[in-house]
């Protein structure tokens, strides 16, 4: 087991290096003079020179890359071109916001998706099954940025049930400790604010959860159908065991591996969707951070934001892979 994990991590090193190189290229591969492009047409000669100096653009590329790597290893992500703040120090609140949203969305997707899939499988070809699977089919095809806008229009602007955007009441901001607001508000015993945080999470959470929810529901259904045809389930049902017990104790356990596979895959993919969701709901996460940086041509922030999210993606995938070995001892890795 430890051997396998060690090997997986070793394999990651060339991938991570390659990723840093692609991200490094974001500034350096801009056609023409990157400094000119970043600063725009009206930039003065001195300003361009200063930026070239600051980014080390006059050095040969391998020295620039080496310096960049050296910075990364010491936890230095460079300085934001707009705010001149070190990115490492300003990135955490954004990262926490994204993680909170992604976590919330994934819980929604798993709880609703799996249960919908289970009910669909149990009552195969019923109206519930039919409707759930049509919704799941549409759910896979719906662009989340459109879904987000529809949610805002219906639930926020028309019905006035939930807040349109943001993460907290502007007039009563949450006092940040860990920057995970669900945790922070609980630590401070501010249950009113905890509730407000949940309210802010619901719309972006559902928008982000739709695709994984649909895929999890479909996978759960097909996996459960397969297991439920097996003899031991028939025996359990024949013995007169309660439906809930048959499903959750016997069937689900064996249907779980393929479901976990899609959950793992979807958790990683969620990070891509987070960029769009955060843009729509003005959620102050890393996606919005990147989006705003694009607007300001703040290339160092774009670079670091992408690297951080990609890094999280790799780590999630690694954890998922390792979890398989823990859950299913039948899987052997050499």
């Amino acid at each position: 087991m430890l051997h396998y994990i060690g090997k997986r991590i070793l394999h990651l090193i060339p991938v991570l290096l390659g990723m840093t190189f692609i991200v490094f290229l974001i500034i350096r591969a801009i056609p023409g003079d990157p400094a000119q492009v970043i600063l725009g047409q009206q930039a003065t000669e001195e300003a361009i020179h200063a930026l070239r100096d600051k980014l080390g653009l006059d050095q040969p590329w391998y020295i620039q890359y080496f310096d960049y790597l050296k910075g990364l290893l010491t936890g230095d992500l460079g300085e934001s071109l707009r705010t001149s703040q070190p990115i490492t120090s300003e990135i955490w609140p954004y990262l926490a916001a994204t993680m909170e949203l992604a976590f919330f969305a994934m819980i929604l997707a798993i709880v609703i998706g799996m249960n919908a899939g289970i009910i669909s499988a149990w009552f195969q070809n019923s109206w519930f099954d039919y409707i759930a699977m049509v919704i799941a089919l549409i759910g896979v095809s719906v662009p989340i940025f459109w879904l987000g806008l529809m949610e805002q229009w219906v639930f926020s602007l028309e019905l006035n049930w939930l807040p349109t955007s943001g993460r907290e009441e502007v007039r009563a901001p949450v006092e940040a400790i860990t920057h995970f607001y669900l945790i922070d508000t609980l630590i401070q015993g501010r249950f009113d604010q905890f509730w407000v945080t949940i309210q802010h999470l619901i719309l972006p959470g559902f928008a982000l959860a739709t695709i994984p929810m649909a895929i999890i529901a479909r996978m759960t259904r097909s996996s459960m159908l397969e297991v439920m045809r097996s003899d031991y389930i028939r025996t359990a049902r024949a013995k007169g065991q309660k439906m809930v017990k048959v499903i959750y104790k016997h069937a689900l356990k064996n249907a779980l591996i393929p479901i976990l596979t899609v959950i793992g895959l979807q958790t990683g993919l969620l990070l891509g969707g987070a960029i769009l969701t955060e843009t729509i709901f003005s959620w102050p996460g890393i996606g919005r951070y990147i989006y705003e940086a694009i607007g300001y041509r703040d290339y160092t922030v774009i670079q670091s934001g992408i690297l951080i999210v990609a890094f999280m993606f790799v780590i999630i995938n690694l954890i998922v892979d390792i979890l398989y070995t823990v859950i299913d001892s039948r899987i052997k890795y050499n």
Partner: peptide
């Protein structure tokens, strides 16, 4: 492997921000 290690929309954003 390296390209697939990025969430795809993110890689697309990276490429477009290089190309304009």
């Amino acid at each position: 492997d390296i390209m697939l290690a990025f969430p795809s929309i993110l890689l697309a954003i990276a490429i477009v921000s290089i190309l304009g």
